[in-house]
């Protein structure tokens, strides 16, 4: 493992007021650096799942995991950067666009399997989904046309091993159906 790199950590946490504050306060207090953070509801009612991308060496990440665990409202923590995981991020990019550049931009959007979701006189909004590197490359490429605004969700990630195979299910299939 390289001495400093990005690690992806997911945590299952209670969906209560102040939990995000508690977690971010821990990161701040201990001097850990979050490069991205995404939060949303999980498959179980009352529980949220968070994905952190953390900069740091192996020891830092180990301490992040331990200190997350220590918080009463944090139920489960997994460092999934080592294993086989899928990670995705969604970004909206507002790019400058006129008649001369439009077709070139559309080609790039095509190559990246991104979408144009809004068109105005002189700008486009592009929606792209992918891992962080893919989003970075697209933003870089579009830079030459003039990027006005970038809005990124931060990475969400999931281990390829399903919880159904590995551990006991987090919730029953019935609950999952109801949730969907």
């Amino acid at each position: 493992m390289k001495s400093s790199e990005k690690h992806t950590i997911t945590a299952l946490v209670e969906d209560r007021a102040g939990v995000l504050n508690r977690i971010s306060s821990m990161f701040r207090r201990r001097g850990y650096n979050i490069s991205s953070l995404a939060v949303g509801k999980s498959e179980s009612a009352g529980l949220s799942r968070m994905t952190f991308v953390v900069d740091g060496d192996a020891k830092t990440v180990e301490m992040v995991v331990k200190n997350l665990h220590k918080l009463v409202e944090v139920i489960k923590v997994s460092d999934i950067s080592e294993g086989n995981a899928v990670s995705r991020e969604l970004a909206l990019i507002r790019v400058k666009c006129d008649v001369t550049s439009r077709s070139e931009i559309m080609q790039i959007v095509d190559i990246f399997r991104a979408k144009i979701v809004d068109v105005s006189q002189d700008t486009l909004i592009i929606e792209v989904t992918g891992n962080e590197d893919k989003v970075n490359s697209l933003v870089d490429l579009l830079g030459s046309f003039g990027v006005f605004e970038v809005m990124r969700t931060g990475t969400v990630a999931m281990s390829r091993r399903t919880s159904f195979e590995q551990d006991k299910p987090v919730s029953s299939p019935t609950v999952l159906e109801n949730a969907s």
């Binding site: 180990e62 301490m63 331990k66």
Partner: peptide
């Protein structure tokens, strides 16, 4: 008893 103290 506190895992976060170990290796800190």
């Amino acid at each position: 008893v506190d895992p976060s103290e170990i290796g800190k």
